[in-house]
Write a protein that binds this DNA or RNA. Sequence first.
RNA 1: GGUAGCGUGGCCGAGUGGCUAGGCAGAGGUCUGCAAAACCUCGUACAGCGGUUCGAAUCCGCUCGCUACCUCCA
Length: 495
Amino acid sequence: MQQQQLSLYNTLSRKKEVFEPLQPPFVGMYVCGPTVYSNVHLGNVRTFLTFDILYRYLQHLGYKVRYVRNITDVGHLENDSDEGEDKIAVKARLEQLEPMEIVQRYTNDFHEVLSQFNLLPPSIEPSATGHIIEQIKSIETLIEKGLAYESGGSVYFDVLKYNESHDYGKLSGRIIEDLQNETRELDGQAEKRNPLDFAVWKNASPEHIMRWPSPWGIGFPGWHIECTSMSTKYLGTQFDIHGGGMDLKFPHHECEIAQAVGVNGEEPVRYWMHANMLTVNGEKMSKSKGNSFLPGQLFTGDHPLLQQAYSPMTVRFFMLQAHYRSTLDFSNEALIAARKGYIKLINGLHVLDKLAYPAEAAVVPEQDAELRKLTTDCFAGLNDDLNTARTIASLFNLLKKVNSLYTGALSLANISLDTFNFVRDTYQALVLDILGLKEEKTTNQEEYVNALLIFYKEAKEAKNYARVDEIRTTFKKQGIVIKDMKTGIDWAYEE
RNA sequence: GGUAGCGUGGCCGAGUGGCUAGGCAGAGGUCUGCAAAACCUCGUACAGCGGUUCGAAUCCGCUCGCUACCUCCA
């Protein structure tokens, strides 16, 4: 493997920076996972796909990556008022289920969907409810340091106090004075010293069903503290990469920085990365706007905005054709185009499999060098802030040559064996391992079998028994036996 | 109102000072019994106005339009 220099856009510095891990060859990466109170929609998938590519590419580069992606199964309040309930509790009551049944149901859905899109599972997938003790400990430290205070059984982070010695808002570009002026009227602000303060622990009302004992009474953790506690626990007080959707930049990630700095006394993250939104007709896809698709609807085409069904890999390819920091607009036309492009790329894999290097070579240096360059170019996009769109474009440029080699417009003998192997290995690695595309078997087995049975029947009628045996053998290899009956010919799975 | 960003050919979507992005659709061609696939060629795009520069889609200013975040959201 040749040396690659990866640059990543760091939200914190607002520029691309060469990626250098704190402790090579190890890389610590934390991505904010879902709040499991409902099904993941396609917009959610885009973010996780972005970091799936990063995870895969870092591994390809030889790094030992610990990828932590949490499951938030408690603590996101419906609103910030005294009566605020977390979404999971609300859903549990609506459906008359245990909160943990809700959590399990949507965690299963999350895993299933990501697996359909061929996303790799993370190294560790911690849940917020499994780390209540760690969160309480973090909160205690914040109180000890004077950065959080108890009020009415809840604990709030003191933003102004923190801002005296640190810069609250530096990640998202917020200015604290502006934030103070723009604070909206919300209930439950009376408990806070300042409207900007955010809850790290919330007092549970008697009817609140998700509840734990704490030094401040019965309650539940606030909506940012879980990420701070879990990232610290599994990746240390400082780690390499923290990712999430653009919409988490403020307040969630800003609060995470404040908490982590407060608890651990050091900047938690080297590279902050944010994936942009998937839009529909130019608007962010979200549940509240009613323009979100569930992956299941996408696969069946069962949604008013969908003209037809689209396969997981079509969608994966579609998303990878745009850069992760750009908004990507969904449209049927774009998906249809993506499907064709995806198939073209997959067909390239087959072509490469079938290409056999000739016994006699007659290498033409110019051709050899050109092919080598086209192959090397494929990494340029990835190295430039994970620009998968450019990588795919490079792959298509390479594929043209590969197809020409296959059809005979170019001669494989003119290419060195070394280059040929490089082309093939690179193409396969990029398509399968790094872009994570896989072949979707679109073939209908039954139709194939029936087509072949026609030949079988013809061979029998012609008493061409050599051909008959040949076809039988072929079927048998596929675990299928042919049934010759008085009434006709059929097939069955071999028992 | 504050903050961040966007506006590229029929569609999607890269590109951030001179060097072909790419895919899809369309036109022509090569190949082919026909077709398909594949390959080759083509459109001469950068919201508008002004400025900097030998040179700008790319930098600066203004105008127009759009989006996200500021409340839970990937």
